[in-house]
Design a protein around this nucleic acid. Sequence first.
DNA 1: TCACCTTATTTGGGATCCCAAAGTCAAGCT
DNA 2: AGCTTGACTTTGGGATCCCAAATAAGGTGA
Lengths: 261, 261
Amino acid sequence: MESIDTELAARIRHDIVLGNYGEEERISEARLCDTHNVSRTPVRLALRMLEHEGLIRRSEGRGYFVNAPKVNDVLQAVQVRGHLESLAARLMAQSPGRHNTLPILEAAIDEIDRLVSAGTMNDVSIRAMQKQNAVFHKTILDCCGNDFIGFTCSRISHMPMLEVGAMVFDRQVLSTKEGKERSNFRLQLGNSQHKVIFEAIQSGDVVRAEGVMREHSNTMVEYIKVFEKRNEELTIKDLIGYSGISVTRHERAETAQETVI
Amino acid sequence: MESIDTELAARIRHDIVLGNYGEEERISEARLCDTHNVSRTPVRLALRMLEHEGLIRRSEGRGYFVNAPKVNDVLQAVQVRGHLESLAARLMAQSPGRHNTLPILEAAIDEIDRLVSAGTMNDVSIRAMQKQNAVFHKTILDCCGNDFIGFTCSRISHMPMLEVGAMVFDRQVLSTKEGKERSNFRLQLGNSQHKVIFEAIQSGDVVRAEGVMREHSNTMVEYIKVFEKRNEELTIKDLIGYSGISVTRHERAETAQETVI
DNA sequence: TCACCTTATTTGGGATCCCAAAGTCAAGCT
DNA sequence: AGCTTGACTTTGGGATCCCAAATAAGGTGA
């Protein structure tokens, strides 16, 4: 378990993203102290953290104000993350030592293929796919030769759907049979992009690796935009972000909690 | 003036980057307290900030350790920043409202041209050029339509040479007449890239805008690599980062301090 | 009645205190 | 002599206290 302030920051962040605080609401240290039963020290550390992330802003002399992110912010962030991933793909495609890690990518692709073919779009299988998806994307970030890319990505993933390898679903879409089929198709399409990326990296086709990865990331942007078009007042709350880190090299037990947001 | 912890963080950061702490050195709260004559509260806030930036790491239960950045880290960061800027250039090139801000870019280009033509490579003129350079780059970030790009860039500029629009020089190169001429030529070349970027954005040539901006950023990478080749054990200390923010829309007085690092 | 000044209260920043955990050193036992 | 175990010390996390600044409210004078 992390220290109190980290966990506290996560809770407040969760509340802000979920919209429990209302736009522009004032947020006071004292309030947080007694709602979460902690002292002011960890509260201040947590608030500093959130300020750094842009989720709250500290007014010159007087208190903190919520800066609730909108769907558009998520879109922008996903675009940035995708662009960084495309750089990673390009660098990995021109890295001489890439062949050692290619099997990891291949295994992830195969596993997703297997899960998609099964067609059981339940929570367990989706989480399994998400895990493999995260493996695929994280591996590219880790093995591209520029550690700063992964570092930057980790700094900007304040929300579950911004984590590398996260998958986003509409909250309602998974409840209907037709929606499940559509989602399944989407995943199938995504994995075929994975295959192209894999081949481009393997053969050292830097341009293609970068381009397809960009397109791959753009898919999520387009997907969310479709929601936006269908539902005028879409909020972040309406999206389900399947995230959950895993496969750290410390081999810690899978902390893939459900981050429904 | 910012609050104490921010300023304290800047000082510690400065020390770390300058190499005053030695690789892997332990760093204690108490020590910092009496060397900087402050209490532990701001020290802890500052250390948290630096930990977040990756300049120190917090060992599980025991103290902080310095994570001094190497030249290679700077190279990686510059590459990331450049890649983000290339995205911004592309987005701006396809933004319909870009024509309103084009004059700003043009003015910056002209001013740099004027300064380069004068050929006086003294501290004042270099700083003036740096300022216009920052204007150019910041304008693109601000007007590309994706605010998250600029946000991300601001989050990763822990060091002076990582700030948007910063210019880097070798510490010795500016001391000789021949070095000054070479630097002047480099700036001239850079500004001609500015012109190409400007024209690409103006005409809506998204591919060219992105490509040239990437190349433009890559110039700094190559420049530093030349140093590295010439001087085997190059440290960050050997680089001069001309930075200094300005032109915020709050129109605060130019805080362009010399950040020789 | 309105404006301005004064006072009281809210709020955040900084300092100090306390405590638990981990590292260190030394002494005693095998 | 080497290993183990105990106490001591160092260090960081959390809680509480104090203070300055700013806002808000109330009262007084024009």
